[in-house]
Design a protein around this nucleic acid. Structure first.
Length: 559
RNA sequence: UGCCCGAUAGUAUAAAGGUAGUACAACGGUUUUUGGUACCGUUUGUCUAGGUUCGAAUCCUGGUCGGGCAACCA
């Protein structure tokens, strides 16, 4: 089992570092800000960071980058922890940037004492003006050359709450003409009279990302600090601060975030969809969030496989949703129980099957595995529900289902021939009449009949009603946030279709118990797709979510 | 008109100067009591122009295209 798998560029760096003896073990971290739910893009980062320390020697910390109290919340902390655990990863330590506020404050004082930071009284607008542009150098602030004593005094008073929000900032004293705008005296502390989700009212000044992230990395002795491409310009500052503060030299590496087509992965935009009620919540099954994918019926391994397969690189990308679908189908094909459900019903009457007669038929749970994962009993009778699309009044040549004179097999039951059909006043077909062949019973077929089609069905008398929710892509554009106008203009109005009266086979009435017995229980509604029981279900009212359809070459053929 | 990052089939990702490969998608076929699955096969690619070299996707130079950089966000 020694399959030679090529390493991605970050794994190569780690392998080289280890080989050269730079570290005894590596330490990575996953650093979410608790201001939203994790999405599929984060899954990639999680798999990378935890995967690195699984593959090589070391461990991974979970660290919440909670330096902006106005957007952060403990509820997000809990959701994030749940999602990472669900994906199957274990963090070594649960840390918070806010745990380091005292240390960080000390670092700031140290910088001031070295003459490398100053308190600025400029407002945001004036500061932006003096900052220059990517092509023009900036100009020094008139407050840039205050004495160490004055800076220390002012910074202390900032901390003590003597000033209102926005009146003062602490800036690193670097170079206002630097080509990298991040290095033009970046703000490292700002005043925010806001309650923090962990430190409460203890502070009214908070460090900026650049003065918290790298420092927290250093405190935790992170060896490889992996982030996304947009932080490349920040690396200069990251390294400058390590040097001036004389702290542990963590190294930052950047990779390209993963983008999925027909969706958005920006916490800001996802929050908008939630707040403005375009979706039912962060865990709406249409959301690309981990919790949304979970509720939709995706498995942790399908997501991990997806992340593994799409890899890590530095180029911009837009991954096709069909790849995610492939991995969930691959997984569920091997594990899901086969059941029958009729989503858009029409009645079939088997005219030569005695009225009042019933029989129990046997169906395997999963033909893909040895022993078929057991079996269940399926009641059969004279009247059945079948899928409306499985009957055509004037079928084309290659139609293998039912139409006048056509024969088809009812899955796990008998072969039937369509003899007649009934129409209502408007010309809609309301009932299909068939005859069945008693000697064609599944498993003991002696009829000698050969049919190309097999259909699913549910006995009218024994059918249970359920709600079935069908999901399609959330957006109609491949990259909604790059289109003209607002990304919400491209929401797919058909992303959720609710079928209130689908008919499910009798055994599915036990779905709640089956889920309690096995939290991974999923179903394949034969010929219709993979489904899972939704949390909205009650004993009287079952709700199923469609995770993904089956591949359908017939549908492709007719379209 | 600055600096930084990038460019390999439709998509994503390998090939560390030596046969351009893998997966998905697409297409065709075999099997099938799911028009599913499985299996077999086919199509499609190194942005461009030079240079170095016996040999370049890979190294060098110029260009083109795409992305990023001026939040008291992370």
């Amino acid at each position: 089992m020694s399959e030679e798998k090529s390493l991605n560029f970050i794994e190569e760096i780690v392998e080289t570092d280890l080989k050269e003896g730079k570290y005894d073990q590596i330490i990575t971290r996953f650093p979410p800000e608790p201001n939203g739910f994790l999405h599929i893009g984060h899954a990639s980062s999680i798999c990378l960071n935890f995967g690195l320390t699984e593959k090589f020697k070391g461990y991974t910390n979970l660290r919440f980058d909670d330096t902006n109290p106005v957007t952060e919340d403990t509820a997000y902390v809990e959701a994030i922890k749940k999602d990472i655990a669900w994906l199957g990863f274990k963090w070594e330590n649960e840390n918070y940037a806010s745990d380091n506020f005292d240390t960080l404050y000390g670092y700031a004082v140290k910088l001031i004492e070295k003459g490398l930071a100053y308190v600025d009284d400029l407002n945001a607008e004036d500061m932006a003006t003096l900052k220059g542009t990517p092509t023009e150098p900036g100009k020094n602030s008139p407050f840039r050359d205050r004495s160490v004593e004055e800076n220390l005094d002012l910074f202390t008073r900032m901390k003590n709450g003597e000033f209102p929000d926005g009146s003062h900032t602490l800036r690193a004293k670097i170079d206002m003409t630097h080509v990298n705008m991040i290095m033009r005296d970046p703000i490292i502390y700002r005043i925010k009279h806001a309650k923090h989700h962990r430190t409460g009212d203890a502070w009214c000044i908070y460090p900026m990302y650049d003065f918290a992230h790298g420092q927290s990395d250093a405190i935790e002795h992170i060896t490889h600090s992996v982030c996304t491409l947009e932080f490349i310009p920040h690396r200069d500052l990251y390294n400058w601060l390590i040097e001036k503060l004389e702290i542990y030299p963590s190294k930052q590496y950047e990779f390209a975030r993963k983008n999925l087509n027909y969706t958005v992965t920006s916490k800001r935009k996802l929050l908008q969809l939630v707040n403005e009620k375009f979706v039912a919540g962060w865990d709406d099954p249409r959301m690309p969030t981990i919790s949304g994918l979970c509720r939709r019926g995706f498995t942790p391994s399908s997501i991990r496989n997806f992340c593994e397969r799409t890899g890590i690189a530095k180029r911009e990308n837009l991954i096709e949703y069909s790849l995610l679908e492939f991995f969930i189908r691959e997984d569920l094909n091997k594990t899901s129980w086969r059941r029958m459900a009729v989503l858009d019903p029409i009645k079939m009457v088997i005219t030569n099957y005695p009225e009042g007669q019933e029989e129990m038929l046997t169906g395997e749970n999963n033909p893909e595995v040895e022993g078929h994962d057991g079996e269940r009993q399926i009641p059969f009778s004279r009247e059945l529900w079948i899928e409306r699309e499985d009957f055509m009044e004037e079928p084309p040549k290659k139609f293998f289902r039912l139409g006048p004179g056509l024969m088809s097999r009812l899955k796990s039951a008998y072969i039937v021939r369509c003899d007649d059909f009934v129409k209502d006043a408007e010309g809609n077909v309301t009932e299909i009449h068939c005859t069945y062949f008693p000697e064609s019973k599944s498993g003991e077929d002696t009829s000698g009949l050969k049919v190309k089609g097999t259909m699913h069905w549910v006995s009218v008398k024994h059918a249970k009603t359920a709600e079935v929710r069908l999901y399609e892509r959330l957006f109609t554009a491949e990259e909604p946030d790059r289109e003209e106008g607002d990304f919400k203009d491209y929401l797919n109005p058909g992303s959720l279709v609710v079928l209130k009266n689908a008919y499910i086979e009798a055994d599915l009435a036990n779905a709640q118990q089956q889920l309690a017995d096995n939290p991974d229980r999923r179903y394949q509604f034969i010929r219709k797709g993979y489904f899972c029981l939704d949390a909205d279900s009650t004993a009287e009212h079952l709700v199923f979510n469609r995770t993904v359809t089956l591949k359908d070459t017939w549908a492709k053929l007719v379209s």
